[in-house]
């Protein structure tokens, strides 16, 4: 897993609530057997019409909005456990998703792939949307070490929570398997006493 570093970037705003993983990557694109290439079909049915033409009114087809952070409405990533959703987001080029609420499984999948889900308050989410819609060049600064997210234009800042273990995984670029494998003896002992 690649190491997560402090990020300063413009953002892509998607103020829709309850975005489920079927929207992020529809099931018909889950037939691949590798982790790569899902970005092409990220938000497929919102991005393209039935003739595979880009829909002009979708934010990802609007050159005004670009960047490495996706900002979305509450309950992002609900529904199916497909990790393909996190792969698609990462493959497209997002390193961070900001929302006011995340579904559990998506959050875990994102963290396991080096994509940082940042939960902010409803009010701060509104502030981000307002600021970005007024000025699409607004940059956001994500500082994982200090657990803060800051709007460069206004200086508006909020701190966010992250499990300390997961934080160290992101910063150091290691994953859960490395951690559990270091406890193999405990697992074998557990099996014998069970």
């Amino acid at each position: 897993m690649k190491k997560f570093e402090t990020l300063t970037t413009t953002v892509v705003p998607l103020p829709i609530e309850n975005i489920d993983t079927d929207q992020i990557i529809p099931a018909r694109f889950l037939k691949a057997t590798t982790r790569e290439g899902f970005g092409d079909n990220l938000f497929r049915d919102w991005r393209y019409d039935s003739n595979n033409q880009p829909k002009a009114d979708f934010v990802m087809n609007d050159a005004t909005y670009q960047g490495k952070v996706l900002v979305a409405g509450k309950n992002f990533g609900c529904g199916s456990s497909r990790e393909h959703a996190a792969w698609a987001i990462q493959d497209y080029g997002f390193d961070v998703v900001i929302s006011s609420f995340f579904a559990d499984i998506f959050k875990g999948n994102a963290l396991n792939n080096g994509v940082l889900p940042i939960q902010v308050t409803d009010e701060f989410l509104e502030t981000i949307f307002d600021t970005v819609f007024k000025n699409p060049n607004t940059e956001i600064i994500v500082d994982l070490e200090n657990q803060t997210v800051t709007l460069s234009e206004t200086g508006a800042q909020q701190s966010f929570e992250i499990n300390p273990y997961k934080k160290s995984c992101l910063i150091n670029g290691y994953d859960d398997i490395d951690f559990i494998l270091n406890n193999k003896a405990s697992i074998e002992t557990f099996e014998q006493t069970k």
């Binding site: 990790e83 499984i105 859960d176 398997i177 559990i180």
Partner: peptide, 17 residues
């Protein structure tokens, strides 16, 4: 339910974090 990275964890260790 778990993601694919966790499927790999269970394959490798029969455990999850």
């Amino acid at each position: 339910g778990i993601g694919t990275s966790q499927v790999e964890q269970v394959f490798a260790t029969q455990c999850l974090l």
